[in-house]
Computed example of a mutant assay.
Amino acid sequence: RDRLLLKQLARNNELLNKIHNLSILGLTNRYWHHKKLPHLVESYLWISQFKEEIYKSTNIPCFGIDYQMYESIPKITFMDFQDSENINSITLQTLLVTRWQYQEHIFTDGSVINNETAFAVYHDNDKVSMKFRLPSKASIYTAELVAIKEAIKYCQKYELNRYFVIFTDSKSVTQAIQNVNPSTKTSHLITEIINMYNELRSLNKNLEIVWIKGHAGITQNVHVDKLAKEATLIGDPIPEFK
Rank of each mutant, 00 (worst) to 15 (best):
A176C: 03
E159F: 00
I106W: 02
I140V: 15
K56L: 09
S72A: 08
T94P: 01
N114Y: 13
F63M: 09
K242G: 01
K75P: 03
Y70R: 08
I73C: 14
N221P: 00
N204R: 14
S23R: 03
Y70N: 13
N59E: 12
L92R: 01
N115M: 09
N13L: 09
L16I: 14
N86R: 12
N206K: 11
S187D: 14
E104V: 10
S170E: 00
I194E: 04
L160S: 06
Q49E: 13
I113R: 10
P182V: 05
Q101H: 09
T232S: 11
M69W: 13
H223M: 12
H33I: 07
S48H: 06
N13G: 07
I177R: 03
N88H: 12
T186F: 07
V97T: 13
F119D: 04
P135S: 07
E14T: 10
N195H: 04
N206A: 06
Y158I: 02
Q101D: 09
K35W: 04
H223L: 04
V41W: 03
E104Q: 13
H34V: 08
S84D: 08
H123G: 03
V97H: 03
S84E: 14
W32N: 02
S48P: 03
F63P: 02
W46I: 13
Y44L: 02
K157D: 09
I47L: 13
Y197E: 02
Y31K: 14
D2M: 12
N88L: 10
E53N: 15
D236G: 04
H33T: 07
E52R: 11
T117Y: 06
M196C: 01
A118K: 13
S111W: 08
Y158T: 02
I106N: 01
D66H: 11
I90M: 09
E42S: 12
L96C: 11
E159M: 11
S48C: 05
K153D: 15
L233E: 14
K7G: 08
E150D: 11
G214T: 02
K226R: 15
Q93H: 10
N204I: 06
T186E: 12
N29T: 06
K36R: 15
V41R: 08
T191R: 07
S139K: 10
S170Q: 04
E144Y: 04
Q103C: 15
Q156E: 12
K226G: 10
L25Y: 07
Q156G: 07
